[in-house]
Every structure is written in C-alpha cells, then in structure tokens.
C-alpha cells in the first residue's frame, strides 16, 4: 500500500512539473500586462528543440539550453507583434500557437519514432532521498522538478519583494503612472514576455527529454492551454502555481489509475479539460474583486496616450 501511494505521489509531481514551469512563465508575462496565448506553440517548439539537440549531441543539458533559447526567441515574435505593433494579443497568441505547432511538426518530422537512447535520469538529493516515503517522492525527482520549485520561489520573491518586481507589476497595473516614474514600460514588457518564453521552452524540454524520451507531433496535448487556466487559478501568484500545477498533475495520473476499472479511456482523457473548466468555475464563483488580475492585462500601452 505504501508503495502504491509513494508511486502515485511521485508520478503526480512528475506530471505536474511541466505545468508548473509553464505557469511560472505565464504569471511573469501577464503580471507585466501582456497576455500570451502562444504557450502551447512555444512549449511545442521547446520540446522539439530539446529533442533534436539532445538527439544529435547526446548532451541533455545542451538540449535544455537550446529549448530555453528557442522559447525566448519564439516569444519575441509575440512581444514584437503585441508591444511594438500593438496588435490584438488574443489573435497574436493564437497565431503563435499555430506557428509553433506547425514549425515543431515540420522540424520534428525526421525524428518521429526515433527515441533517445536514454532520457534525463532522476537526480537523488544526497541524504534526503533516503527518508522513507518523502525521500522517493520529493527528493528523487527529475532536475526539472527542483528547477520548477526553485523558479516558483524565486519568481514569487522577485515579484513580491524587489524593485524589479514592483516595476513589472506596475507595468501591468498602471503603465501610464509607471512610465511617469521613469520606467520604460515597453522594455519591461518585452523582457517579461521573453522570460515567459524561457519557461515555456523549459516546460517543452521537460516533456520531450524527461517526461518521455521521444518526439511526437502534438505531444503538448493542450498543456499550454491548461497553463493559461492555471495562471488564473493561481491568482497570478507563483506560489499558488505550485499548488495548481500538482493538482492537475494528479488528474493526469488519475487517468491511468482509473483505466483498469473499465472506464472508457476517451472519457478519462477528458478529465484534465473538464477539471480546468471546474477549477475556473470555482474561481468564478468567488468575489471577482479578489481575483486580482493585472488591471491592464491585454491592453496595449501607447506612450503619451491616456
């Protein structure tokens, strides 16, 4: 029994990690006032980049670095369209998703059905991983897990307790006043979109070289969209993102647990998407003022205009 519980908890964290990485990125981006709906595309680009680089260089860490860079470059497109060209952010994000899914399908085609020799191995934390139950669950995880938790804490600290965080949050709340304080709002927003891209790239790498060890078209399977819902669920707070991501990790694991009971696999596959709607429904029933969304989210900022 203990073994089963350990295994379920361990797999929940594994399944939740890419969601956590993505959500941290989207929180940073949306806090600055830019809505990026291109997460699904950027994650896919990250996944294919990590896979191709790892496959050809045999170096997992080079793959991770390449995915990070690819995510950043890819989201630069969204920054250019939505900040410099003041395009509609919803449509720009959708375009980004289409483009990302397309480019990754194109680039990854020669690699379909050719798995890596080995995927990223778990990293046991010396000492701590020997603790019964807690050890294998929390301290014998993929490096992406520690990276996710560490990034969530760091992002929370920066947004909450540093002057950079104040700049980012005020760019999303009141860009005109922020600009009056001598902050270059568009520059802050550019960096936040690109920083978000780095996390989507990592989330993608997590999927293709750690969660699995092969590239399949469409392997992100809507996780990028779940990330956007989780950002709302997290109330734009990286610490709450941890809670949300692992809650959803649990739902992904639940699919496999329920399968032997004879429930239709297609019905089980609906669960994460149904859960997303339910989570947002629960949020919607709350007092809307407490939702705490950045006030100027998705509003282009035009210098010198009120």
């Amino acid at each position: 029994m203990e073994e089963i519980i350990t295994s379920i908890a361990q797999r929940t964290l594994v399944a939740g990690t890419p969601l956590l990485l993505g959500t941290i990125g989207e929180v940073i981006c949306e806090r600055s006032g830019i809505l990026n709906l291109g997460v699904e595309g950027a994650m896919s680009v990250g996944a294919v980049t990590a896979f191709i680089v790892t496959f050809n260089t045999q170096s997992i860490w080079l793959g991770v670095a390449a995915a990070l860079a690819a995510g950043m470059l890819f989201c630069l497109l969204h920054a250019a369209a939505s900040i410099s060209f003041q395009a509609n952010q919803v449509v720009s994000g959708l375009a980004l998703t289409m483009l990302g899914l397309g480019l990754s399908g194109l680039a990854g085609k020669p690699y379909v059905g050719r798995p890596l020799a080995e995927k990223m191995s778990p990293l046991a934390v010396p000492g701590l991983s020997k603790i019964p139950v807690l050890g294998p669950v929390f301290f014998n995880q993929s490096p992406f897990f520690y990276l996710g938790i560490g990034s969530a804490l760091a992002a929370w600290f920066v947004l909450r307790h540093t002057s950079l965080g104040i700049k980012i949050r005020s760019a999303g709340e009141n860009p005109t006043a922020t600009e009056a304080q001598g902050v270059n709002v568009n520059k802050v927003r550019y960096w936040c979109v690109v920083a978000g891209g780095a996390f989507y790239g990592l989330a993608g790498a997590n999927l293709s070289i750690s969660y699995s060890k092969s590239w399949i078209e469409g392997m992100t399977a809507g996780r990028g969209w779940i990330v956007i819902a989780l950002t709302i669920f997290a109330l734009w707070n990286p610490l709450r993102a941890i809670l949300g991501a692992f809650l959803f990790g649990g739902i992904f694991v639940l699919q496999y647990l329920l399968q032997p009971l004879g429930i239709s696999p297609n019905f089980l596959a609906m669960l994460p998407y149904l859960a997303t709607l339910l989570v947002l429904l629960a949020g919607g029933l709350r007092d809307k003022r407490k939702l705490n969304a950045p006030a100027m989210l998705a509003e282009p900022y035009v210098r010198g205009q009120r």
Binding site: N88, G102, G105
Partner: peptide
Amino acid sequence: GLPAATVNVFNGILLLFLIMGDYFAR
C-alpha cells in the same frame, strides 16, 4: 514530401503578418 503541419505554419505566419499589418493601417 512536406508534413501536414506545413499548413499550420502558413496559417500562423499569415495571421501574424495580417495583425501586424493593421498597425500600418492605423
């Protein structure tokens, strides 16, 4: 011999350029 995803690339790029083009209309 291009994969089916090619159409997605077309769609994404054309949409991106259409909305950026609007900037020059405004």
